[in-house]
């Protein structure tokens, strides 16, 4: 097995998928000659040409809308949103157009569109470049949502995104691009809606996705030293959502913590907690704990940003509360 960075794994997925399907084309800001601001598309324009790796003006509504039109007419475009925060600039084209065309037309059109974007804080990008917005997407029916936490998942989930016949948003994390991990050379796509138990455990279930999974694993190590055996579940996709794996775990542990980097208020963790309550209340020995960013805009200054975002310590504290242990 080779080690690749998360960015390299994504590039490999794009390359393989573009080799497989000539209808795939990429579009976005600075993705051509420059290779994207996170270098994910580096070299792809040289390899596939300017028609298939299309540099766009800074015009998110325009090029995501164009991607919707391409998708309806038989192409499989990938539009790169440089920062998730710009989704709102293109919100009409994503939520009113891409998500609804199949249904509004009574199934006459489909929109096989992949939006690749990255989100998250921890780098001092301040309030307009650090947000996690997956819950906004999850609220609107008609789009699938993948949030890979490792290089291997990045490759497998992005490959699957191009096998879907509906809009998909693949949400990367800006602090994961340089992380390394084993990635198989020959790799099947990872089917959506199948959570990954990244650390088995008996005492408490910690449910997460994206970069926060790494925090959860760190927290689990700390908890192990305190005699708590945590099971960590990486959902991989939140739409579709694999509640079966979550509930099976809770039947074993009887305790649950949901952790994500997005704001806690109305975050996707609230949905997971509600479903656990609806579908597994009888198995719970304690209320479901939620960990998320504080409900304030994310500040620039390091101590302020750090205090706003979730951390392994906060996940440990939440797990201890779920275990009814002293803080």
């Amino acid at each position: 097995m080779r080690e690749l960075t998360y960015a390299q794994a994504l590039r490999e997925a794009l390359t393989e998928e573009m080799e497989r399907d000539p209808n795939i084309l990429l579009m976005g800001e600075d993705i051509g000659v420059y290779g994207g601001v996170f270098k994910v598309t580096e070299g792809l324009m040289a390899r596939f040409g300017e028609e298939r790796v299309r540099e766009t003006p800074i015009s998110e509504s325009g090029f995501i809308g164009a991607a919707v039109g391409l998708a309806m007419m038989g192409k499989h475009p990938m539009a790169e949103l440089m920062f998730m925060d710009f989704a709102w600039v293109a919100a009409d084209q994503i939520f009113n157009q891409a998500c609804k065309m199949r249904q509004m037309s009574g199934g006459q059109v489909k929109v096989p569109l992949v939006i690749r974007t990255q989100q998250g804080g921890g780098r001092g990008n301040a309030a307009q470049h650090s947000q996690c917005l997956e819950a906004h997407f999850a609220h609107i029916p008609g789009i699938k949502i993948a949030l890979p936490s490792t290089p291997s998942d990045a490759k497998g989930l992005l490959k699957q995104a191009f096998r879907e016949q509906d809009p998909v948003v693949v949400i990367e994390h800006k602090l994961l691009y340089n992380t390394k991990g084993d990635v198989a050379e020959q790799m099947d796509p990872i089917l959506f809606g199948k959570a990954n138990i990244v650390r088995p455990g008996r005492d408490v279930t910690i449910i997460s996705y994206s970069r926060t999974v790494l925090h959860c694993l760190e927290a689990a190590t700390t908890l192990a030293a305190q005699g708590v055996d945590a099971e960590v579940i990486d959902l991989r996709t939140i739409m579709p959502l694999d509640m079966d794996t979550v509930l099976a775990s809770i039947r074993k542990t009887n305790r649950a913590v949901v952790a994500h980097e997005a704001h806690r208020n109305a975050g996707f963790g609230a949905e997971i907690a509600a479903r656990i309550m609806e579908q597994g209340f009888q198995h719970l020995d304690a209320p479901v704990e939620r960990v998320g960013a504080l409900d304030v805009p994310i500040a620039y200054s390091l101590p302020l940003e750090s205090a706003t975002l979730p951390s392994p310590d906060k996940i440990v504290a939440a797990a201890r509360r779920a275990m009814r242990m002293e803080a």
Binding site: A66, V68, G69, P77
Partner: peptide, 11 residues
């Protein structure tokens, strides 16, 4: 309007 750009481009 953005959509028509893509629809035209596809052809």
């Amino acid at each position: 309007l953005p959509t028509v750009v893509g629809a035209a481009l596809a052809g």
